[in-house]
């Protein structure tokens, strides 16, 4: 039976107290929200914190609040099930609501939170295995080992960004509110993430993600399209988040396309974005923008499905995601 390693469990009453507890115990501490990512990882000894700091008693983290300027603030501890059924989210942010409904299974969405999904650990064929399995290959550099088995000559880890919410949230340029012992700060979209399989976040370990703040509606449309083997359970092996801003005449003024499941962060499809700006979103333009997304989709052989095929279908998925933004 896979069992959790022993740890001291904390349930602080404020975000600042949670941050202080984390700081006190340093690398021995980890936050837990829904536990659906951390606890399996702890059972396989990917992470072995001796202090686990739960955010469930922090007030306000389960609130969804309309801000006076029209933005929508979602507490990090709001469950994924709550969000996928939330009428305002379905009406005003259907792209994000769809991405959330695509996450894993209904049971895991009952437990998992939006904060946890935004900070999901990166994944890899050589990492998401039992301790014994990993030991048999002398581990990998993400945990306990020295080599990256996906690219043995590589100085870095290539574990894959596997959250469904991240690509669309980054495309929408949503903001993240972070609380630490030094106060509160906000970072926008891509700035929370790094292109590294191990250090995939820019936030300090002791910073608590407290809220996801969605931009005001109007003038833009976002979408998310997911590729996976089964229609349930599976993490994305490609997850395209797109957001397109248009003027009153339907001309694209800005476009963000992010490729999830294709690298260690949600990769911008820059050339595709450039093609769109200044033009009407016609079928021909969408197809061309899709084709241009093949290059940044630098898939590696460390997820489910064939690596070359995943790259080949990126243009199709980008085009479909853009068509949904029309």
């Amino acid at each position: 039976m896979l069992r959790l390693p022993p740890f001291t469990y904390h349930r602080p009453k404020t975000a600042a107290e949670a941050a202080a507890l984390h700081k006190e115990h340093g690398k021995q501490a980890m936050f837990v929200a829904g536990g659906t990512d951390l606890y399996p990882n702890m059972k396989r000894r990917h992470q072995v914190p001796t202090h686990v700091v739960s955010l469930q008693d922090v007030p306000g983290l389960t609130a969804i609040e309309q801000l006076p300027d029209g933005r929508l603030a979602i507490g990090a501890m709001v469950s994924l099930t709550t969000l996928e059924k939330h009428l305002q989210l379905l009406r005003d942010y259907p792209g994000l609501a769809h991405a959330i409904a695509e996450i894993s299974t209904p049971l895991l969405r009952n437990m998992g939170t939006i904060g946890g999904n935004l900070l999901l650990d990166t994944r890899c064929t050589y990492y998401d295995q039992s301790h014994e399995w990993r030991e048999s290959i002398d581990f990998c550099m993400k945990k306990d080992g020295a080599i990256c088995w996906v690219a043995p000559g590589s100085p870095r880890c290539w574990a894959v960004q596997s959250s469904d919410s991240v690509p669309v949230v980054c495309a929408m340029e949503a903001e993240f509110e972070l609380v630490s012992t030094e106060g509160t700060r906000t970072v926008r979209g891509d700035a929370l993430y790094r292109d590294d399989g191990i250090e995939y976040l820019t936030k300090k370990p002791e910073e608590v993600l407290t809220r996801l703040i969605l931009p005001k509606t109007g003038g833009w449309k976002a979408s998310y399209l997911k590729l996976r083997r089964r229609d349930t359970y599976d993490f994305p092996v490609l997850g395209v988040g797109a957001c397109v801003w248009t003027d009153a005449g339907g001309v694209v003024t800005k476009a963000n396309i992010r490729l999830g499941g294709a690298g260690s962060y949600a990769i911008p499809a820059t050339e595709s974005e450039k093609l769109l700006v200044g033009n009407q979103l016609t079928d021909e333009l969408i197809a061309a923008a899709g084709t241009a997304a093949m290059k940044p989709a630098r898939t590696m052989d460390n997820t489910d499905l064939d690596v070359y095929w995943r790259r080949k279908v990126a243009p199709v998925f980008v085009a479909r995601a853009l068509a949904a933004c029309k």
Binding site: M1, L2, S54, L107, M111
Partner: peptide, 30 residues
């Protein structure tokens, strides 16, 4: 029942306050 113990099979499903959840990923203290 205990199955995968990693949230991947659903056989340990119980209800907490009426909501079905995976008991292999819930701390008893919670």
């Amino acid at each position: 029942k205990h199955g995968c113990e990693l949230g991947e099979c659903g056989t340990c499903t119980v209800q907490i306050d009426g909501t079905p959840v995976l008991s292999c990923l819930v701390l008893a203290v919670d």
